[in-house]
């Protein structure tokens, strides 16, 4: 009798503990995955937001826009960062799985910057010249006013949104097989900074230790550097939006987080990191 009372008491305590734990406020977690171009920006956003919202955990990982979109479709991330718009085949998958078209949130603007070695005398290129260089039609710097030396190409992996965007806008075909693919724009910048005859592309936020190449639409146009002014005015020819995608309209903590990103405070971070605000 005494034992059974003890047992009942222990059981009650365990039950109360279980119920107590069940009702304990769980830390609110938002997972963000996708574009490597956006990873520094997304980490900065998360860092600042978590400081003022200590009960929220924002977990940011890269992997590329394609990887992020796959994660959004298979449900393993709440927010997908993408440096390109959703393809129709990806939207079809969202329709099939979630009966939804997905929610697209433009959160920053970026000019795809062309990186050259600081020792390279070339300082401006047309879109066509860039396309010819990255497709392998032009292989010597001499053809674009540089030294008589072979051009070394550095680019992104095909899971990257930057890779896709640059291919669609500039290369307009297949990349040259000699183009060395690197994991992230930082790696491209690093490679170009060590190679006098190297050329690479990537997000502006990563560009340190290299020379930015001016870009012009065609021979007759004026060449521009990717700056907030030229991007805002639509003068810099390789400009794109950076997006956040969600399966459905954001609610709760995710909504608060996205509202903050689109607020003046969130957009200030965009400028600090080296991208350009949407507002």
């Amino acid at each position: 009798m005494k034992n059974s009372r003890k047992l009942a008491l222990i059981a009650s305590i365990v039950l109360l503990a279980v119920i107590g734990f069940a009702f304990m406020p769980a830390p609110k977690k938002i997972t963000v995955k996708g574009s490597d171009t956006m990873v520094i920006l997304a980490q900065k956003w998360a860092e600042i937001y978590m400081k003022s919202n200590p009960d929220v955990i924002v977990q940011v990982t890269g992997g590329g826009s394609g990887t992020g979109i796959s994660a959004l479709i298979n449900g393993s991330t709440d927010i997908c960062n993408s440096s390109r718009a959703l393809k129709s085949s990806e939207m079809d998958k969202l329709k099939e799985r979630y009966s939804s078209l997905g929610i697209e949130i433009p959160c920053a603007k970026d000019g795809i910057t062309i990186f050259l070695s600081e020792k390279n005398p070339v300082s401006e290129l047309t879109i066509k010249q860039l396309g010819d260089i990255f497709s392998g039609k032009t292989r010597n710097w001499k053809a674009v006013g540089g030294p008589d030396a072979e051009i070394k190409l550095y680019g992104r992996e095909n899971s990257s949104g930057t890779y896709v965007f640059f291919q669609e806008k500039v290369v307009k075909g297949d990349y040259a097989p000699s183009c060395q693919t690197l994991p992230g724009t930082a790696a491209v910048v690093n490679a170009v900074s060590k190679d006098i005859y190297g050329i690479g592309y990537g997000g502006a936020a990563y560009a340190t230790g290299v020379k930015h190449c001016k870009v012009k639409k065609d021979d007759k146009s004026q060449a521009y550097l990717a700056t907030p002014e030229t991007i805002a005015k639509g003068q810099y020819p390789i400009t794109r939006y950076l997006y956040m995608y969600m399966r459905n309209r954001p609610t709760g903590d995710a909504k608060k987080y996205i509202d903050w990103i689109l607020s003046a405070d969130g957009q200030k971070v965009v400028t600090e990191v080296g991208y350009f605000p949407v507002k």
């Binding site: 329709k95 979630y98 009966s99 939804s100 078209l101 929610i103 399966r247 459905n248 309209r249």
Partner: peptide, 12 residues
């Protein structure tokens, strides 16, 4: 015709 809307989650 296929119509998709976001009404507290996906609806089609």
């Amino acid at each position: 015709a296929q119509f998709y809307a976001d009404v507290l989650g996906g609806l089609s």
